[in-house]
Write a protein that binds this DNA or RNA. Sequence first.
DNA 1: CGCCTAATTGACACCTCTCAAGATATGTGG
DNA 2: CCACATATCTTGAGAGGTGTCAATTAGGCG
Lengths: 247, 247
Amino acid sequence: MNSALHPSSLFRTATVIKWEDARRPRRAGEFFKGLSAKAMDDFESLAGHLCCPPATFLIKEDQEPISVMLVYEGEVNLRISSYAGKRFILGIAGPGEILGLASAISGTPYRIEAEARRLCSLAVLKRQDFLDFLMRHPTACQNVTRELSRQHTRTCERLRIVGLTSSATARLAQLLLGWCTEGRETGGGTEIRFLLSHGEIGECIGASRETVTRTLTDFKQRNLVEVNGSILTVPNQDALAVYAGIS
Amino acid sequence: MNSALHPSSLFRTATVIKWEDARRPRRAGEFFKGLSAKAMDDFESLAGHLCCPPATFLIKEDQEPISVMLVYEGEVNLRISSYAGKRFILGIAGPGEILGLASAISGTPYRIEAEARRLCSLAVLKRQDFLDFLMRHPTACQNVTRELSRQHTRTCERLRIVGLTSSATARLAQLLLGWCTEGRETGGGTEIRFLLSHGEIGECIGASRETVTRTLTDFKQRNLVEVNGSILTVPNQDALAVYAGIS
DNA sequence: CGCCTAATTGACACCTCTCAAGATATGTGG
DNA sequence: CCACATATCTTGAGAGGTGTCAATTAGGCG
């Protein structure tokens, strides 16, 4: 399961990789699916290897896509930001995902930011080498096309949240429901690993930090959600769906 | 130049096609770029032909992508809509564009609506035939991938407008500036062919019809825009950029 | 000429942002 | 273990902007 533009990575156990482990490429994720060993070797012969600490900016806006980066290990925030400093989180990229894929393909300047959330391990190769690689390996090209279509679908879903939903309450409910699809079902409801701050949640739905706090408090009082440390539980998704304006 | 998710089609002369002309496929647009005559014949042997009047729904939300549609001629509104009836215009598709491309590739249900703005001429083929065609013709596959990355970039730009810009004034200004890049430069400024109603503009930026009217009136009074029939002129893009919050 | 759609304008309520202050948690160093 | 620093969360009050409702006007088309 790919996690571009979607916080499925939130629900994985937060394994902190060690530097020595990070040096070993992980051939996980959508990109390597169905690739022959020969093709993988081909890829790794082209790619350099990069480890970076949390809060490293891997891509900045308006930057030319000279090189292409693929996540081996770790998590990367994908964002857009405005001149006024306002930021919007598109999603969180995990292993096997190519950062700024659309720009890498089209060659137009990046319109997103990518920032490591934790210690990350990445493959780095020249954009032209990447494009040539796709030409040599049709399977990889198909994977990339599928990945791109999935990213586009996810972005449209985010647009649905911020474009069609006027109230912050409904937006937060929709975001939580989206996360529930990746959560774990238990007797008491759906459990979500909850690693984002209120500020970051606000950046996901286009609301202020304070509004997120207030709305979440309201949800707790209505028993729509329960928070225990970094675990958020939704006892009844249908009840939450009422507030999402889906019913 | 492609116009998916972008109203560049607004700036083409509004030629109303006749039924007899519409029956003749037009091999225009991104999809056919660089394709051999043989490949084009291959495509047309697979494709049926469809003409439809304005306001025809070509795609509805949650529909399975069993068949794939390519626009030969005409204009098609691409939208998302909410259960509450609120709508958001993603863009306008023109000749050479494939409707709901992301869903067609991934096979997931359409998450958009497509509605003919005028008399349209379309190619229709089975999704599997389309995918097989892409496998046979790598050039077509590359065109599709490029098209997809462009659509994704455009969608991100829309997300930037509605997600990062809080005031309706700034959103409208940004929309107009985006259209200016496709407009015609004249002595008095940048001319834009203006075929959308205030209501539709509202659906582009997530604002109500009345707010568009008010904001546009305000812009006129400040000499930021001039409206003559269906021609909208921006005398000074820099002045408008101030209101867009870009400066 | 009348109908219908779209545009216009005003009044009002509601929601959310912003600013401000305080509380709670987490981490660091002595 | 404590003191301190930092980050995050919480809560309140006020102002501003936008949606909604309503009434009127303008324009297009048969």
